Amino acid sequence: MTRAQANLPALAIALLLVVASVAAAIGLAGSAFAGANTDPADSRLAASAAERLVTANGPLTVRANVLSRAAVANASANLDRLLPGATAVRVTLDGETVAERGNPTGGATMRRVVLVADASQRELSPAFDGSMEVTLPRRTGSATLTFDTGTANVTAVRANDRVVLHDEGGLDGAYDVDLARYDTVTLAFDTDGELAPGSVTIAYRVETTTKAVLGVTVDA
C-alpha cells in the first residue's frame, strides 16, 4: 500500500506530460493546417508588397530597411503605389495600423524588422575658442555652412582630413557639403586669422532610429 501511494505523484507527473505533449501536437497540427489554408496568391502579394516597402527607393524609406517616420504618418497616400488595384491590404507598424484599403479580414501577413528614422534640423555656431575644429553628431550626411567672417577669412574646410571647401580668397556665403553618413565627422577650418564667435554657422540634420516590425496583410 505504501509503495502504491509513493507511485501516485510519479503517475500524476507522467499524466501531465502526456497531456502537455498531446496539446502541443494539436497546436502544431492546427498551425500547419492554418498555413496550408493560406492562399498562395495572398502570400506572394504580401511578400512582394513588404519587399517594395523596405527597398531603398520605396515609398516609405530613406534607405533600404529604414522607414521615414514622416512618410509612415502619410502611408495611406502611398497604398496605390504599393499595391495597385482593389486588393484589400493593411499595413501595420508594431501592430498599429498605419494604412488600410478595404477590409482584409483574412489573407496572408508578411512581417519585416525595420528601423524607423526621425529627423530634425539643428544649427550651431562654433566659438572657435582655442580650436578650429567642430565635431558633428554621427549619421550627419550633409550640412550647410554659412560664412560671415568679417576681418578673417576661412580659406578651406576639411571633413576628416578630406577637403570639402576651398577658396584662397576666402569663403563667403552659404555652401552645401556632403559628408560621410556612417562616420563621426570633424570639420576643421583653415583661416588667415582669428575667427570671432558667430563667424560660421553650421546647419545639419540629426537622425535617430528605433527598431520596429512592419506588417503587410493582403486579402485578395
Rank of each mutant, 00 (worst) to 15 (best):
F128E: 09
D129T: 15
G130Y: 01
G130D: 13
S131C: 13
S131M: 12
S131Y: 06
M132T: 15
E133W: 04
E133V: 14
E133D: 15
V134P: 10
V134A: 12
V134R: 05
V134S: 07
T135H: 15
L136C: 14
L136Q: 11
L136M: 05
L136T: 11
R138K: 15
R139L: 15
R139K: 09
T140H: 14
T140W: 14
T140R: 07
G141Y: 00
G141T: 00
G141C: 03
S142L: 11
S142H: 00
S142C: 10
S142M: 06
S142P: 02
A143M: 13
A143K: 01
T144E: 12
L145F: 05
L145T: 05
T146L: 05
T146H: 03
T146N: 08
T146R: 03
F147E: 13
D148H: 02
D148E: 12
D148C: 02
D148P: 07
T149S: 12
T149I: 04
T149F: 00
T149D: 08
G150K: 00
G150V: 04
T151Y: 12
T151E: 13
A152T: 15
A152L: 05
A152E: 13
N153W: 01
N153A: 15
V154L: 00
T155F: 08
T155M: 09
T155Y: 02
T155C: 03
A156L: 10
A156V: 08
V157K: 02
V157D: 06
V157W: 05
V157H: 06
R158F: 14
A159V: 10
A159Y: 14
N160L: 00
D161V: 11
D161E: 08
D161C: 01
V163W: 00
V164T: 10
H166C: 10
H166Y: 06
H166S: 10
D167E: 13
D167W: 10
E168G: 14
E168H: 07
E168V: 11
G169K: 12
G169N: 12
G170R: 05
G170V: 08
G170N: 03
G170W: 01
L171D: 04
L171Q: 01
D172W: 03
G173R: 07
A174D: 08
Y175H: 15
Y175R: 12
Y175C: 03
V177C: 04
D178E: 13
L179Q: 02
L179V: 07
L179R: 00
A180R: 13
R181L: 07
